[in-house]
Structure formats: C-alpha cells, structure tokens
Write a protein that binds this DNA or RNA. Structure first.
Lengths: 229, 229
DNA sequence: AGCTCATTCAATAGAATTATTGAATGAAGA
DNA sequence: TCTTCATTCAATAATTCTATTGAATGAGCT
C-alpha cells in the first residue's frame, strides 16, 4: 500500500481489478467462497469446515472483505460472513470455465481420482427439471445436514456423503439417482456417484451445485419469506 | 511446484482454479489481456504498448500461458500471443463487475480523474445500434491506428486520442459523438469524451469496447474471411 | 557459415503472500 | 464487575512473486 505509486488512472483501475482477481487467487479462499455460497457462516464454522486454524481463516476473510468479495455482520458473539454479491459467484464460475478449457490438468485430476471416466457426463439443469416432473428420478443432496437445512432442491433428500453407506438401503433401486452438492466441481457428488454405481445403482451428477441452481432463479426449499438469511 | 503436496482431489481442483485467478491477479497482466483482446500481438509489440522491458513482458506472458490464459505461435521471427479463449475475456469481465460493485474505489478513481461526473452515463450497445440505423451519431474509435486496422465498429472513424486535437475540425458539430476504445473502462474514451465536451461537442462513451462488441456477435469491419488473424 | 534480432533463460534482490503462534480486543452473559 | 469466548491483531519465518540485468537460444536472412 505504501510502496505503490500510481501515475495514471488506467494503472489505478488495473490495480483495482487485479486486487479482486488476487483475492480469488488462492485455493483456501476459493474454498471459502464455495462454502459461503451455501449461506452465511461464522469464522469459527468456516474454520471447522475447512480444517484450518481460526486465525488463518480470519485473515483470509479480511483479505476478501478488503477486495469486496464478502461482507460481515455481527450476530451475538459471532461474526457472520457472506458473499458480497452474486457477481462474486459469477466471477468464480468464469474462472472455473477458463480452467476447464485449459482442462488437461483439471480433467486429469478428476479422472485420476475417479477411475470411472465412462459416462461421467452430468445431468443438465433442464434435463433434471423435466425428469423430476415425470417423477423418474431420486434427487439426493450429499452435503452435510446443516447446509441442506439452509436450502436445497425441491424434493431432494439429504444423504450426506459420510452417511451414504448407512442410508443406502433406503434408496430405491428402480429409479435413477441424481446427486448434487456445493458446486459443479464439488467432489462429494463425484464420490457419491462412484460409490452408488459400485453398488449397482444407476446414478449421475447434476452439472451444478445448489448455489448455481439458486442463482438461476430456480425454486429452493425451504422457501423463506421475509429477510433472507 | 516441488514443495506443493496435494492430499485430495478437492484441494487439487482449487489449486487449479486459483492458478487461473492468480494469473489474472496482476495489473500488468490484466493490461496484457486487454491488449490481446484487440488482436494477436508479438512480445515486442506488447512491450512497446505497455512501456515495459521485453524480458518482463515475456515472463508475464509465459506465466499466463502456464495458466491457460494465452497461446502462442511463431510467425517468422516473431512469436504471436493471443487469448486462449473467449472465456478469458469473460473472466476478466466478471472480475471487473465484482470491482464495480465494490465500486467505492473504482468510481472514485474515474471521478477523481475526470471531474465531469454528471452525465457520464455510457450509451448501451442496443441504443447505439438503433441510433446508428437512424444515422444520428458519429462513432469514433479512439484507439491507435494499428488496433483500429485489426477491426472496428461498422462505420466508425479512427480518431486516435493523441490526434484528437488536430482532427477536431473534421468532426460534425450537429451530431452526437459516441466514442469507444479497448474496453468498458478503457480510459482513452473517457478522456476523449471529456475533451470533446470541453470543446462544445455532444459526446458520450459506448459502454463496451471493441472486444465486447465482437464477443456479442456483432459485425466488425473489416470482415476478414479465411483464417482469422 | 555467419549475422541479426526477437525471444527466452538464469540469477538476483526486493517486495508481497502465507501459515503459525500467542496475545489482545471486545461483546455477551452471570 | 468479572468471566467467557469468537474474533482480530502482531510478529515471525518460509515461500512466492516481481522487476531487472545480461547472457543464451534459435529462426530467418545474406
């Protein structure tokens, strides 16, 4: 901040734009974005989810606030952070697309971890909507229960990945299962589909996660009226 | 690269996505993106445009190539770099939007430099199209001649900012002037509009630059057939 | 073969980023 | 007022990023 001397407005603008990109240019902070896209969270809750020291998460969040990615407000003795804007999720999505196109590496990672690379094609949003109308699919939300509670697809049932094994007997074997989680590349849905297929189920991933579904203006349950939290 | 140990696929993906954002997280590299959005360029040409040492620009370009932002191919003794994808421009745009929303600083920069903050509202693309049909506007492209030559709006005349003063007498005073340049925040069009107004013209900026116009699928002159360069 | 010249490489120093530690802050509740 | 506890601050070391310099590469040309 002190060593930076800006000579012209053009430079000043690039510095501003670069600051936003820089704030997104860190794996931990991207993971924070993905979690905050599920709903507002306290520093403590985020640190638990990511398995990182609280002070570390606090600093990342402050860096993100400085760049305009998140805002915060106090609730009792907790401070809740949330994404500043839908534009933040859009920027994350745009960056993901660039990485996918340069996908040699991204695809290698996914395929390297989940050997079944046949028919990993995801279900599109439109496709899912029409199949839901026909009642042909079971939609499972593989996120943890607390995230499910903040909002989920209409009619979806919560099958956290950690409890997939124990809940398997409850799933119908005569219908296709569509799994989704936090976002297009959220690995939990990859793992759930791989596991389900190993057990003989017909299963696919939804191309998006809940935040994208919500951002597309689709209905989310439970429908909360009044102030959105 | 060597000190990085990745334990799980989730982490590996965030690292990939973060690498893309990191490559965009530098003012100089963003300026390179904006210039490359006008058309392919050699290292030398870019270094001249930015006023930076060639070796420095070369290193930035290599970093961008590693992140999948640009590609390069040799032409004689020059190596031409170009944007890898439309998605790169889209990502840049998305980042700009985030910065605009957090606009306290961005807007302050623009307003601080150009005191006329009344009616700096830009002309939208649709608005310009309909007014062009009616023949009500003079469209000027304030970029340097070499960029204009690679492609420009139909019917636009090239008035490089550096030559604005000397070309002023050629401009009609009875029609509104719409100026555009490299992108939505390219400062040359701001400066051109400010100067034109000072001289009594009725002038506004186009909301976008040429790359956005092209990306929207609009006609660009000259229309080149065959291999796009 | 030898020369030219655009680009890349290699080495360096200075600056910024990151994770870690422990202490400080400050709001809530007793 | 005192205690609790979520969060922030401050200081540090390790790593990474950045700009700069001069040498090396390697394709085109004579």
């Amino acid at each position: 901040m002190t060593g930076m001397s800006i000579r012209n407005p053009k430079q000043a603008l690039y510095v501003q734009f670069a600051a936003v990109a820089k704030a997104l240019g860190n794996p931990q902070r991207l993971e924070l974005v993905e979690h905050l896209a599920q709903g507002p969270r306290s520093v403590d809750a985020l640190a638990t989810k990511l398995g990182l020291p609280i002070a570390n998460v606090s600093q990342h969040l402050q860096a993100m606030r400085r760049a305009g990615l998140v805002t915060s407000d106090r609730d009792g003795k907790f401070i809740n952070y949330r994404l500043a804007d839908d534009s933040v999720l859009a920027a994350f999505a745009a960056i993901r697309v660039v990485a996918e196109h340069h996908s040699a590496e991204v695809e290698r990672v996914v395929r390297g971890w989940f050997d079944r690379h046949d028919d990993m094609e995801p279900v599109t949003r439109d496709e899912l909507v029409s199949r839901m109308k026909e009642g042909l699919v079971t939609v499972i939300d593989v996120r943890p229960a607390d995230e499910f509670a903040l909002g989920h697809l209409p009619g979806a049932i919560n099958v956290p990945l950690s409890e997939l094994d124990s809940l398997l007997p409850d799933l119908r074997t005569d219908r296709e299962i569509v799994a989704y989680c936090r976002g297009p590349w959220c690995v939990m849905s990859f793992e759930a589909v791989a596991e389900l297929r190993k057990r003989g189920f017909s299963a696919r991933r939804l191309e998006d996660g809940l935040p994208e579904w919500r951002a597309a203006g689709m209905v989310v349950e439970p429908v909360l009226q009044g102030t959105q939290r």
